[in-house]
Amino acid sequence: MNQIDISVIMTVKNGSKYLESSLSSVFSQTYLPKEVVVVNDGSDDDTWEVLKKLRHMAPVQVQLVDTQGVGRARALNLAVNHTRYPWLANIDADDQWLPEKLAQQVATISLFPNVELVVTASQIVYGEGEGELVISRGFSVTPMGCDSFYVNNPINHSSILFSRRFFDEVGGYDEALFRQVDIDLWVRALRKGFIFYQVDLPLTVKRLHEGQSFEVGNRLSYTFNSLKISIKKLRQLKAPFYYFPIAFVKFFYNNIPRSIRRRLKRVSLWKL
């Protein structure tokens, strides 16, 4: 396996509740990164104090950057600008990695020397749940082109490992955007001809909880913005026309309360 030097980036705003589990999952990697850069984006809870405590427990260097609140995209760009190594991995402050996450991605880079971005499959947990630690499937990798993005955004932002060259060539995160800045980056990369690779193991844990903007009184605004981004994405990727109605179906579905959506999913799985 080639030696890959990795900087991990994180941005956080009022995210102290899950910070320890998130950063502990980074510190527990079998393939340790060289450093972690955390941007505190104007938190008014105890996030900064928790970060300072966790920094002293870290097995790698941790840089802390404090701001008065610059917004998601700018905070991500700021984190990248503070990194020192050629490969970058993002983790959101409420998500987790399984211990082999970075190791499997580094193995993928060794197999595909021209790769610029590697992601992993993900698993979902709700509230304070924990991800499944037992991985039974063998190692496999799937390339992801434009058609992988027509229906959904298949990339969990916490699963990415990408080169600094990729980031600079695509132009970084668009600071004019306030939400879903990741899908905008993927679309710009796809239009430039980049191909992504996915490790087909759920090595990243995506946490869904009531503190997220999707669930805190902003559902309609969030999903309407998602609809606009989806339509723009389909146009930019020149998707077949029959994918466009799917974006509207998803808009209506996502405005159903989460509890009902989860019941619908269970019914669907039972019928299958």
Rank of each mutant, 00 (worst) to 15 (best):
V60P: 01
V60C: 12
Q61L: 04
Q61M: 09
Q61Y: 11
L64F: 11
V65M: 04
V65T: 09
V65L: 13
V65G: 08
D66Q: 10
D66N: 08
D66H: 10
T67K: 14
T67P: 14
Q68A: 15
Q68C: 10
Q68N: 14
G69R: 06
R72V: 04
R72K: 13
R72Y: 01
A73L: 09
A75M: 10
N77K: 11
L78D: 03
A79G: 04
A79C: 08
A79K: 00
A79V: 00
V80P: 00
N81R: 14
H82P: 08
H82K: 13
H82V: 02
H82Q: 15
R84F: 06
R84T: 07
Y85H: 11
Y85K: 02
Y85I: 01
W87C: 03
L88M: 04
A89S: 15
A89H: 05
A89K: 01
I91F: 00
D94E: 11
D95C: 04
Q96W: 01
Q96C: 09
Q96K: 06
W97K: 02
W97S: 01
W97C: 00
W97Q: 05
L98S: 02
P99A: 10
P99D: 11
P99C: 08
P99Y: 03
E100N: 14
E100D: 15
E100A: 13
K101A: 06
K101Q: 07
L102H: 01
A103L: 11
Q104M: 12
Q104F: 08
Q105R: 10
V106W: 04
V106D: 11
V106P: 05
A107H: 11
T108C: 14
I109L: 15
I109M: 13
P113A: 12
P113F: 12
P113W: 11
P113N: 12
N114W: 07
V115H: 08
E116P: 10
L117N: 06
V118N: 04
V119M: 03
V119P: 00
V119E: 01
A121E: 09
A121P: 03
A121H: 08
S122I: 00
Q123F: 11
Q123C: 12
I124L: 15
I124S: 05
V125F: 06
V125Y: 12
Y126Q: 06
Y126E: 13
Y126M: 11
G127W: 09
G131R: 00
G131L: 02
E132Y: 07
E132V: 08
L133V: 13
V134P: 00
I135P: 03
I135S: 05
S136Y: 05
S136E: 14
S136H: 11
F139T: 10
S140A: 10
V141A: 04
V141E: 03
T142C: 11
T142Q: 15
M144I: 06
G145D: 13
C146Y: 00
C146M: 08
Y150P: 02
V151N: 04
N152I: 12
N152T: 13
I155C: 00
H157I: 09
S158C: 06
S159G: 14
I160M: 14
L161D: 02
L161H: 05
F162W: 02
F162P: 00
S163Q: 12
R164Y: 08
F166V: 07
F166P: 01
F167E: 00
F167S: 00
